[in-house]
Design a protein around this nucleic acid. Structure first.
Length: 333
DNA sequence: CCATCGCA
DNA sequence: TGCGATGGG
């Protein structure tokens, strides 16, 4: 779940309206799909499925959320993960274990009729499979939205594209993109509105974090912020037991990063992790090209293959001007 | 997640 | 007119 920097980044989170975000954004595709998949569910945790039992929650999320983006002048590009780095092997295995255990508990909860527990476990058990990734890419193509596969981590590639100035920001729920050097990070872009958190209803709004403001405010260089992350723990290392964001900040500010690692995790070599954040595998070989949606193609896919209602899909497409004589997508670009 | 509907 | 509940696939 990324790096736990929330504690020290709280004051740098600036709430923004979707309407202010006009422009381009590189979206961490895996992160977005995961959010759609965990959120778009029935009360007992069952995701949306077509008649053949294929999960369609992610398609619903991609379709409706992107229509809203386009309507508001936000041009998203989706960045999929490539092969995970070796450093992530442990994290990947641990997550799989957590998912599988939750899948069992989901079944059990449904059997006892414990709806609330079922929902919770269902969300934890959510897994993005190859079919979901393939159908997502196909829908993005039909919607005229560019996507690419990163050499390694999608967040690293998104951060690179933002650094290059090819997109205005990186979008992800995780703070890692900041450690990868994204000058601007947008959170809560693919989750919004009212959500239930532990029984309480909270309103989730998009927020923006400016890397320069973070570094200036904390008095750190990017390299030092990465050290803070390493001490807390990232997807690529376990972190020092008992060290949270605030302690890590103190350690790094005091120039005691190396010393702390030596004393408290003598067997851990932080250098590969540091190098991965500061110089991750990325590519400049991409072309961001937003096109008109292929209306018939979208309808054929969603309604023809996945049993979406044509009335709803049509209504959605008309919102972004797919009716003849109305303003078209091109008018925004 | 989103759109839609019923109700105050 | 705006909010909560509901169904979507």
């Amino acid at each position: 779940m990324g790096v736990a920097l929330r504690e020290i980044l709280g004051e740098y989170r600036e709430e923004v309206e979707l309407e202010e975000l006009r422009g381009t954004v590189a979206v961490d595709a895996f992160n977005a799909l995961y959010q759609f998949l965990t959120i778009i569910r029935q009360p007992d945790g069952t995701p949306l499925m077509d008649g053949e039992g294929r999960v369609t929650s992610h398609l619903s999320g991609i379709f409706f959320r992107n229509l809203n983006f386009l309507e508001k002048g936000i041009r998203p590009a989706y960045i999929f993960d490539g092969a995970p780095p070796d450093l992530k092997t442990e994290t990947v295995a641990r997550r799989r274990g957590v998912r599988e255990a939750a899948g069992e508990r989901w079944k059990e909860a449904v059997e006892r009729g414990d709806i609330e527990e079922a929902y919770k476990q269902a969300r934890t058990s959510a897994r993005i499979d190859d079919a979901m990734i393939a159908s997502s890419k196909r829908l993005l193509d039909l919607m005229g939205i560019p996507w690419m596969v990163a050499p390694s981590e999608g967040e690293a590639q998104a951060a690179f594209m933002a650094r290059q100035g090819d997109v205005g920001a990186a979008a992800s729920q995780d703070y890692d993109a900041l450690l990868f050097g994204a000058p601007r990070l947008l959170r809560n872009l693919t989750v919004s509105g009212k959500r239930k958190v532990r029984g309480r209803s909270v309103t989730v709004r998009p927020e923006r974090i400016d890397l320069a403001a973070v570094l200036a405010g904390l008095g750190l260089s990017l390299e030092e912020l990465v050290e803070v992350g390493i001490l807390i723990g990232t997807d690529f290392n376990t972190g020092i037991r008992g060290v949270g964001a605030k302690t890590a900040l103190k350690i790094v500010r005091g120039g005691k990063f190396q010393e702390t690692i030596r004393e408290r995790a003598p067997d851990f070599d932080p250098e590969p992790v540091r190098a991965f954040f500061l110089n991750p595998p990325v590519t400049g070989d991409y072309c961001l090209d937003w096109r008109e949606p292929d209306r018939d193609g979208v309808v054929a896919m969603l309604c023809g293959e996945y049993a979406f209602s044509e009335a709803r899909v049509d209504a959605g497409l008309q919102k972004i001007g797919m009716k003849t004589g109305q303003k078209t997508l091109g008018d925004w670009f």
